[in-house]
């Protein structure tokens, strides 16, 4: 599935929840199911600045040249948000990731319902993913 299609799918999933608690419940469940990050990436080097909670993010390439993103956070809602980002971007080429938008975050209403500090953190995560994509596409 393309990045765009996955985004559509997520927007669709969120559209069934009209109450914010339900949306957060869903995010929390996603956060709980987030696959663990390799402990060797859970260091300051992989820490993202500017989040309300601590977020570690690592990106590499698989044999087919697709990006593999893994991440963790000490806050569960943040883990849920990361899970969404990974679902959208992991498994695509760095070129695809570099050029993709993140309109789905607005469309599910996440952006506007986050506190400014959390929204900043989200922006930092997206920026970090794009930076990884730029670095990895240069490396290829």
């Amino acid at each position: 599935m393309s990045i765009q299609d996955i985004q559509e799918e997520i927007v669709e999933e969120f559209s069934v929840y009209d109450d914010w608690m339900d949306k957060y419940n869903y995010l929390i469940e996603l956060g709980k199911d987030l696959p663990p990050i390799d402990p060797k990436y859970k260091t300051d080097q992989y820490l993202i600045e500017g989040c309300t909670s601590r977020v570690w993010l690592h990106a590499g390439l698989d044999r087919e040249g697709k990006m593999v993103l893994t991440a963790d956070s000490d806050a569960i809602i943040t883990r849920g948000i990361i899970a969404l980002l990974i679902r959208v971007f992991s498994g695509h080429t760095p070129e695809e990731v570099k050029n993709a938008d993140t309109a789905f975050l607005d469309r599910i209403g996440l952006q506007e319902h986050l506190s400014p500090t959390r929204a900043n953190g989200l922006a930092s995560m997206v920026r970090q993913i794009r930076m990884y994509a730029v670095a990895l596409s240069a490396q290829k």
Binding site: S53, D74, I76
Partner: peptide
């Protein structure tokens, strides 16, 4: 071991304004 920001975010959505951090 719940993160203060998780608790604060959800309290907010339930109408309860607190500060976290």
């Amino acid at each position: 071991d719940l993160h203060h920001s998780d608790v604060g975010t959800l309290l907010d959505k339930l109408g309860v304004a607190v500060r976290t951090g």
